[in-house]
Amino acid sequence: MPSRRYVERVSPSFRPCENGRPRPAKNEFVVHANLQSPPVHPNWGITYPRQMMKNLYRLTDWQIDSEREKYFESHYGLLSYKLTKNRNFDQFFKISGNIQIQLMCWRTDEDRSVANPSCHGHLFNLNDGLHFFVFFPSYQLSEWKEISEAILDVYHSWKL
């Protein structure tokens, strides 16, 4: 579970070394989350991850619901589009339930070298009407659910 500690040093690294503190452990990393107004489209209103997915891949509701296996594969409980043309990023979606998410993550493999590979995107809590822009290390994608819960816990702990 994240420590919820505010990081005092501004750094492009997800594991900054701060004065007077020990070097971060391998499982310690920084998550950036900004509470924002949700993205709004003039024709259909708030753009939730399902609509983002439809727009991005030009899919219909029927294709997403009935032919999901044809277009998507599952990673850590998130949907990832199989037929991507962008070789640098992978898109991940969770389009049902109270917590919905759309993430774009740098691909990291033997052919690509990125200094601080990251995932970034939109986190929605529909019950509370919240939208966050999130940013965390790509190697922590499998922990997206815990990261999402920690962001919401921090928000609710600060709420007056």
Rank of each mutant, 00 (worst) to 15 (best):
V7I: 15
V10Q: 12
V10W: 10
S11I: 05
S11W: 09
F14N: 02
R15H: 07
G20D: 02
P22V: 10
R23P: 00
A25N: 06
F29A: 02
V30H: 07
V30A: 06
A33T: 03
Q36R: 14
S37E: 11
S37H: 06
P42R: 08
W44S: 04
W44C: 07
I46R: 05
T47W: 00
T47V: 14
P49D: 03
R50P: 00
M52A: 11
M53V: 09
M53A: 15
N55F: 12
L56I: 08
W62H: 12
S66F: 12
K70C: 04
K70D: 07
K70H: 12
F72V: 07
E73Y: 08
S74T: 15
Y76N: 14
Y76S: 14
Y81P: 01
K82G: 07
K82Q: 13
L83H: 15
T84S: 13
T84E: 10
Q91H: 14
F93G: 01
F93I: 03
K94E: 05
K94A: 09
S96V: 13
G97Q: 04
G97I: 03
Q100K: 09
I101A: 01
Q102P: 00
Q102W: 11
L103N: 04
W106I: 02
T108Y: 10
T108W: 07
D109E: 10
E110I: 13
E110Y: 10
R112A: 04
R112I: 15
N116S: 10
L123R: 06
N125K: 01
N125E: 12
N127I: 01
D128Y: 04
G129R: 08
H131C: 13
V134Q: 03
V134T: 12
F135H: 15
F136R: 03
F136W: 05
P137R: 07
E143R: 14
I147E: 01
I147N: 01
E149K: 04
E149H: 06
L152K: 03
D153F: 05
Y155P: 01
Y155H: 15
H156W: 09
S157W: 09
